[in-house]
């Protein structure tokens, strides 16, 4: 058993619902320090919600989430904002500020949170952009970037303050194979070079199995499978196998629950 200090994020028996709809029912997962942890699951299961819960943007109904040993839901607003400087999130859309150049976007967190001089900021921004291969695009506006470039620019902004934790929300969604390869490489290299801890939320199975150190698969408001890539591949859970192999029908049914087709078409005759 590893001690608690080896985990950066620890979700304990957490419950969360939106209105009537239960999103998580007593879910527990742990994110080891310095590793890439993948969270997989079908669309619409609330994977983004999980990241927002870890980021303190949403408050769980029950259970606890700790970040480096401190409970996030219990934090004061000030403590939460302080801790958020140590975490970073890469949004699905990139969420670059559309009224600023790529350079200013990456410089933004530095200008907000540090008192560094402009010349030092320019150096740091150039280094971060170099790391994602976009130093040449520093003066472009976000609207001029392709989807993959926008995500890389957002990644440069996410690592600007050298965070401890970086959360990727569907980093591979809608990317062409080349951008996908670039992102896979960046996530792995940044994690190891900057000694980060990464959480990757995704449903792109093949990409994740190549980079993740530990994988959680979510469905039905809870964790249905966990382990290393090898353990997951060898899992005997039908649900996990359906997900990995992309079968259309299985424990997750093809049909959204509906009344019987015959009954619907022929009236209530039988």
């Amino acid at each position: 058993m590893q001690s608690n200090m080896d985990y950066l994020v620890d979700v304990k028996n957490m419950t969360f619902s939106r209105g009537e709809r239960v999103i998580y029912d007593g879910i527990s997962l742990r994110v080891p320090k310095g590793k890439i942890t993948a969270v997989m699951g079908p669309s619409g299961i609330g994977k983004t919600t999980l990241l927002k819960l870890i980021g303190g943007q949403l408050i769980p109904d029950g259970g606890d989430i700790t970040f480096d040993g401190e409970s996030i839901p219990a934090m004061s607003r000030k403590a939460l904002y302080h801790n958020r400087r140590r975490m970073s999130m890469l949004f699905q859309s990139g969420a670059l500020f559309t009224d600023m150049t790529v350079f200013d976007n990456v410089a933004f967190p530095l200008r907000e949170h540090t008192k560094l001089s402009e010349s030092i900021i320019a150096t740091i921004v150039a280094l971060k952009l170099q790391a994602v291969g976009l130093r040449g695009a520093a003066q472009m506006m976000p609207s001029e970037l392709s989807g993959g470039m926008a995500r890389r620019a957002a990644l440069a902004r996410a690592i600007a303050l050298d965070p401890d934790l970086i959360m990727y929300d569907e980093p591979f969604a809608g990317q062409d194979p080349i951008s996908m390869g670039v992102l896979v490489k960046l996530i792995r290299e940044l994690n190891d070079a900057l000694n980060l801890t990464s959480i990757v939320v995704t449903h792109d199975v093949t990409e994740v199995l190549t980079i993740a150190d530990y994988i959680y698969i979510l469905a039905d408001q809870r964790v249905i499978g966990e382990g290393t890539a090898e353990q997951i591949k060898g899992s005997d859970s039908e649900l996990v196998q359906q997900f990995l192999q992309g079968k259309a029908d299985g424990p997750v049914p093809f049909h959204y629950p509906a009344d019987d087709l015959r009954a619907a078409f022929l009236g209530e005759s039988d």
Partner: peptide, 14 residues
Amino acid sequence: ATEQLSSLEMMAVD
């Protein structure tokens, strides 16, 4: 809608 507000929050900017 483009998550810019969320991303400000996550960057610890109100």
